[in-house]
Design a protein around this nucleic acid. Structure first.
Lengths: 235, 235
DNA sequence: CGGTATTTGTTCGTATGTATT
DNA sequence: AAATACATACGAACAAATACC
């Protein structure tokens, strides 16, 4: 009854080697050929084991280069006040942010409802990417009610983060009203931007930020690389 | 430059078929042999495509039976006060809970630190499983400081939920002090208990519950089936 | 810088095991 | 009990990306 596939056994060995530090984060694992020789199995069997570890986020592979032990996840506090750069700086990591694109358009029905604006009202959709120590941490889409925040497009175009851009248009403080979290798998596009593999697990958060009066100022969706991030919720 | 592996193209076709309702949740997909015939590719290529969809949670396979379109995800609200059964009942679903096992033992260093007890103090570890409409939603491990909560083991053994069991030993209210969320992949054991596949994406939450005075009463880890659950945080 | 060797990725073929129908 | 269908495992070849000299 008990029965362990060869690939699972090899995956288990590698998992232990990593857990016990014989391979540290960043280290290169033996090549597939070496491992199949050592264990006396076909290369495909080794590949199956590696694929499992890659899926667990324990290992990353690069065609032509090799298989490497993945870096440890970063911690990312998520509370009422969400300040990406401040949070990361406090954690001793070097944060960065990049605006991937921006567009003004009419709100969809869903966006209008969430932001409490009229259907068809102008909104600003901003796509961004956040880094820690040069490594992509998240891609995000922010939807702003433009009529409520004139000049925001210019502020964001200057490369300001959301916090500073909002401040520039008079919103000195805002609060997260609700956040929804789920686990999804990276699409091809997301995989490229986040520098993960298509099918990697991502944490998807959908959040609504409101000003001190409770008026919505931003509706955002973020996708975090699941193996680099741990969201922390503090009450 | 653009280059799409055959398996990715086939996965894309299947994804569309599912998205556009040509295969509804629960439907059986064509067999691997049929698909490899139709597309004129090797069976392994079809298997690679199916593996990708299985990883996305869109498809489930059963050895000997076939590949089936997965059921749709559920929603699960998570606020300051987290009450699994109440939350689900409000969502119009029929919740259930099952105690998988329980053990009293000495606290590990990590557990002792989090629960603020002496190293080696007795703790109670309880393993449980939660359902909605008969479908497993989460497996969880709860660590309780036994010396602080005498009689809790008996209360839990009676099948009471955490809330009622704590009430029975004098904790009438408790609050989630912090929650950490990450995306992980199901281990073999978890896969069996959650009725998902090994390697499926799971939402892992690590939380600390404290009484009104701020004294820790429970340290819990939960693993949610990522494709059946969305955590909702409302402030 | 360029060419070559190395290494992972894709695809085919074939055989056998194991669970379900 | 037999047929069906997914799972595992072997072998071979070539493609694509990277590393190295």
């Amino acid at each position: 009854m008990g029965y362990t596939p060869l690939w699972a056994a090899i995956a288990h060995l590698l998992r232990q080697d990593i857990a016990e530090g014989r391979y540290a984060p960043g280290d290169k694992l033996p090549t597939e050929a070496q491992m199949s020789d050592r264990h006396g199995v076909n290369r495909h069997t080794v590949r199956h084991a590696l694929a499992a570890l890659v899926q667990e986020g324990l290992v990353r592979t690069r065609r032509g280069a090799g298989a490497f032990v993945a870096a440890r996840p970063a911690d990312y506090p998520l509370g009422k006040r969400v300040r990406f750069t401040e949070n990361l700086r406090r954690a001793g990591r070097n944060p960065g942010r990049e605006v991937l694109g921006m567009e003004a358009r009419a709100a969809t029905a869903e966006e209008a409802a969430l932001l409490d604006v009229a259907q068809g009202a102008q909104i600003l959709a901003s796509h961004g990417r956040s880094f820690a120590d040069g490594q992509p941490m998240s891609v995000s889409e922010s939807i702003f009610p433009l009529e409520r925040l004139p000049g925001l497009d210019a502020a964001l175009a200057e490369g300001l983060g959301v916090t500073h851009a909002l401040k520039a248009v008079g919103i000195s403080d805002y609060t997260r009203a609700s956040t929804r979290v789920s686990a999804v798998l990276a699409t091809a596009t997301q995989a490229v931007v986040l520098q993960v593999r298509e099918g990697d697990p991502l944490l998807k958060t959908t959040s609504l930020n409101v000003d001190p009066e409770g008026v919505p100022v931003e509706f955002g969706r973020s996708w975090f690389a699941g193996d680099r991030i741990t969201l922390t919720l503090e009450d």
